[in-house]
């Protein structure tokens, strides 16, 4: 069984994050990290692989030089090898452009042997669009099972449970399939020393758009179907109040709510 797990390098959400004049995420802060829920995706991929026995987990990432750190983290957790799509023309891709490039990479990986399962996180903490998983599945013509909180692979089929706003669902599909994973799906393992050492020698393949046969004009800023017209930090909240309760804080808060027509 071969499993591709897509991982993204994102600015640390604990750090100061911002947008540049072009409206794109500032990605040179140096404090990037593996997108958190992608750790759950890697964990899910490893669990499925371990249960299947003879399985290979390939971490796939796309982005500038630093992005390989995300793949490296997946390797430390236990993925076998990594693919890094690195091409300046891919910069500025919107979610659909990203999905297009990732799909081409999965298809390129599949040239060496079929890919049975593609696993992604349900969202990235930078863009938070959650569009890539379903778009990637659509591009690949694969079954799409998103937002999984529980994943079972058996008998050539994958079954996931998911919890939506208004309903709980159990979905099932024959492999190959794409699964996007919620942060509630599992507790991601922490890389141990042996894993960190082993990751240093695990292969990372670097592909350009040309290697994947992707037209540079169809992705990146050039191919984006959305354009950011303006981006500005929200003004700071003004007239902020902080009180320590000395017995009547509830009464004061009630007055504040009424005064501001909030109650």
């Amino acid at each position: 069984m071969r499993i591709v797990v897509a991982v993204k390098h994102v600015p640390d959400i604990q750090a100061e994050r911002g947008l540049g004049p072009d409206g794109r995420m500032v990605r040179d802060g140096g404090d990037g990290t593996l997108n958190e829920v992608d750790e759950n995706a890697v964990e899910a991929a490893l669990v499925v692989a371990e249960a299947a026995g003879d399985a290979e987990v390939i971490a796939l990432t796309m982005g500038p030089d630093d992005a390989v750190d995300a793949a490296r983290r997946a390797l430390q957790m236990g993925a076998h090898r990594a693919v890094h799509v690195l091409d300046e023309a891919a910069a500025g891709s919107d979610a659909l452009g990203t999905a297009h490039v990732l799909a081409a990479a999965v298809q390129r990986i599949a040239q060496d042997g079929p890919v049975d399962l593609v696993v992604t996180g349900m969202a990235a903490t930078d863009g938070l669009t959650s569009l890539v998983p379903a778009a990637l599945a659509a591009e690949l013509g694969m079954a799409s099972l998103t937002l999984a909180v529980d994943i079972t692979v058996a008998g050539g089929r994958v079954t996931v449970r998911r919890e939506l706003d208004h309903a709980d669902e159990t979905l099932r599909a024959a492999l190959p399939a794409l699964v996007s994973v919620s942060d509630r799906a599992n507790e991601a393992r922490y890389p141990n020393f042996a894993g960190i050492m082993a990751a240093r020698t695990k292969p990372v393949t670097v592909w350009s758009l040309a290697d994947l046969g992707v037209d540079p004009g169809s992705v990146g800023s050039a191919g984006a179907r959305t354009r950011i017209l303006s981006a500005a930090p929200r003004p700071a909240r003004e007239d902020r109040v902080l009180v320590t309760d000395t017995g009547d804080a509830g009464v004061k808060l009630a007055a504040y709510l009424v005064e501001h027509k909030l109650a």
């Binding site: 909240r237 007239d239 902020r240 109040v241 902080l242 009180v243 320590t244 309760d245 009547d248 804080a249 509830g250 009464v251 808060l253 009630a254 007055a255 504040y256 709510l257 009424v258 109650a263």
Partner: peptide, 19 residues
Amino acid sequence: DYGVVGDLFTVLPQVTAEL
């Protein structure tokens, strides 16, 4: 915008009662 350092089990019922 409005922070109360206090015990929610005291403050919230007081807000409810006052409203």
